[in-house]
Design a protein around this nucleic acid. Structure first.
Length: 228
DNA sequence: AACCAGGACGTGA
DNA sequence: TCACGTCATGGT
């Protein structure tokens, strides 16, 4: 116990969850499906243990689009939309802008909110082209209609490999439970930031954020303020 | 068959 | 600031 408390909580969580779940291979890319046989319903595993993604502009764009499409939406639905777009050869900003509204909306329909998300995507395509390959600033992303804190940080972390925290429902949940002040989050190298966020998502899906949390199976319960 | 998913925005208090 | 309604499909 004393030893645990003396360790940094973030490191403790990272080590425990990594040992339990293994590398998660985020962000999902549709051309790297199913490499990792481990899964929890929504995820097939992608490129676990490899942090060299995205490898090109197309993959960067795909991640950005996925980040928008997955707003309040389960990943399988997003994946359907991305596969549809890919089939229509629309996984590129210019292609989408040149395409008919009807076509694009039909592709992204499985991801839900397709009217709103179409609008968000069009705005983002414009912005993405204007970047000409450079990394966007967080404020620039937030200025875009349809991109809030979480989507912006997801894009920065997974599309542009910036070591930032994505404070989504899952991360907030664990931080709250183990008593990590979200104002004093520790920054680490990109690879670790990438992995720990994915691990927190996996942990919440399996254990912490289920209707009835499975606290008995939780590997980090020793530092949980809600566990007795 | 309700419930909810890797949110963001607009509105009114 | 903050609480609430809206947006929509698909899996459990």
């Amino acid at each position: 116990m004393v030893l645990v408390q003396s360790l940094d909580k973030i490191d403790f969580i990272y080590n425990k969850l990594y040992k339990e779940y293994g590398p998660q291979g985020w962000w999902p890319l549709i051309n790297y499906k199913g490499i990792n046989p481990t899964k929890t319903g929504s995820v097939n595993g992608y490129h676990p243990g490899k942090y060299g993604f995205p490898k090109n502009e197309k993959e960067i764009f795909e991640i950005c689009l996925g980040a928008i499409l997955t707003q309040n939406t389960s990943w399988p639905n997003v994946e359907k939309a991305l596969i549809n777009l890919n089939k229509e050869k629309l996984l590129g900003p210019k292609k989408i802008l040149e395409s008919e509204e009807k076509i694009v909306k039909e592709c992204i329909r499985p991801a839900g909110y397709y009217n709103q998300k179409y609008k968000k995507i069009i705005i983002f395509c414009d912005f993405f082209i204007s970047l000409r390959g450079r990394t966007p600033k967080r404020k620039e992303l937030l200025n875009l209609w349809g991109i809030g804190d979480e989507t912006a940080d997801s894009i920065l972390l997974y599309a542009y490999r910036k070591p930032v925290w994505v404070m989504d429902t899952y991360t907030k949940r664990v931080f709250e439970r183990v008593g990590i002040n979200i104002e004093q989050k520790k920054k680490m190298k990109y690879e670790k930031m990438n992995e720990i966020h994915a691990l927190l998502v996996e942990h919440c899906k399996r254990i912490c954020l289920k209707k009835k949390p499975k606290c008995e199976d939780c590997k980090i319960k020793e530092i949980c303020l809600f566990y007795f």
